[in-house]
Design a protein around this nucleic acid. Structure first.
Lengths: 192, 192
DNA sequence: TGTACATCAGTGAACGCGCGTTCACTGATGTAC
DNA sequence: TGTACATCAGTGAACGCGCGTTCACTGATGTAC
């Protein structure tokens, strides 16, 4: 029960600071109203604590992404919904996104190969839709693997730049998502 | 003269660690064979030192990008060359790239609006080529501003994911650049 | 019901560490007369 | 040529700080007889 409070507190602090280095065990302890050694009753060290928080966040991203595309049937619509959910997640949980995708960590380390990436829940939903689009003959291009990868790359590019350059006068985020996704879709769509 | 040595040393350490927080004044001093207070004879504080290094790196990126497109005339070729140079820079100077584009800093703070972004040398070369492509009628789409922005977003997405997930079994970087750029170009190219 | 003991979450003080920065200083070099 | 002084890059020691982590401990709770 305290374990969950610690996770919540760490997540909150991570959201505030945006950097695991700036989240101290002492601060976490204070947030849950205990002393710092009490944390070690529940987590062996700081790294494990941060990693556990990241795991939770990763699952939440997957859930939100899945929920977003639920209303749609058309794979292209679902891809679009996916992209919006993804960027919204990044903007809502900037620190989380940074830790998960902008720092050189290999936790979520099962992410070594394309097969592993496909198995990661957050990517899977995008991937499945790209496959579906290919099966319906909507896409022509380098195949589902590479196409999904390229889409992810683009959407990540947007999400990460929005976070890294917050003082740039961006067009509305949703418009940017549409722009990026549309360009990407246009590039993959079958001609004629 | 020592000033430059300090900048070089800081840049080297930044390249090793990839994180300004992990580059200590003491380490810089050791690298140039002085004691740590000696650094303060040349820079008022650590932030200024790091910022100065970033400025130098930014200029170098601009130079490399300009040099890369020199051999080409066709704007599309130049865009491609630009993209390759950009990603190569990121891979060659991962720490530099991270500091410049993956951390929420607003140094290079003149980057508030689209006009300012256009003035930043590194982006300008990409932008000019996109404008040229529009003028030649090669592109149809949301206009030079947004198109250049979207291209940058995509290429940055690739560069930053390559850095953030180095243990993923990526296709060769150059192939990925071509893939991303081609998809993007395809999405912008005029039909018919 | 009462006593003895085990369990266990949590405490408080301390550890060693590396950090950015400050401060009084040294010692070589250059200049004025 | 010799002396007095200013300049100034660099030193060495110390400052206060926050960190992750360890350690011996306390005190409440539960169990066995």
């Amino acid at each position: 029960v305290l374990r969950d409070e610690i996770l919540d507190a760490t997540e909150a602090l991570l959201l505030e600071t945006g950097d695991p280095e700036e989240v101290s065990i002492r601060a976490v302890a204070q947030q849950v109203g205990r002393t710092s050694p009490a944390i070690y009753l529940h987590f062996p060290d700081k790294d494990t604590l941060i990693l556990s928080v990241c795991d939770r966040m990763f699952e939440r991203l997957a859930e939100e992404s899945a929920a977003a595309q639920l209303p749609y049937d058309d794979p292209v619509d679902r891809i679009r919904a996916c992209a919006h959910a993804y960027v919204r997640f990044a903007l809502d949980h900037p620190a989380a996104y940074r830790v998960l995708f902008m720092e050189p960590n290999d936790w979520k380390s099962e992410m070594g190969t394309m097969e592993h990436l496909r198995d990661s829940v957050a990517f899977r939903s995008l991937y499945d839709n790209v496959v579906a689009a290919y099966e319906q003959g909507v896409f022509t291009g380098p195949g589902p693997d590479l196409s999904a990868l390229v889409m992810w790359v683009s959407i990540h590019g947007l999400a990460s730049l929005l976070l890294a350059k917050p003082s740039f006068e961006w067009p509305p985020a949703e418009a940017m998502v549409d722009l990026v996704v549309d360009t990407e879709l246009q590039g993959l769509r079958a001609r004629g």
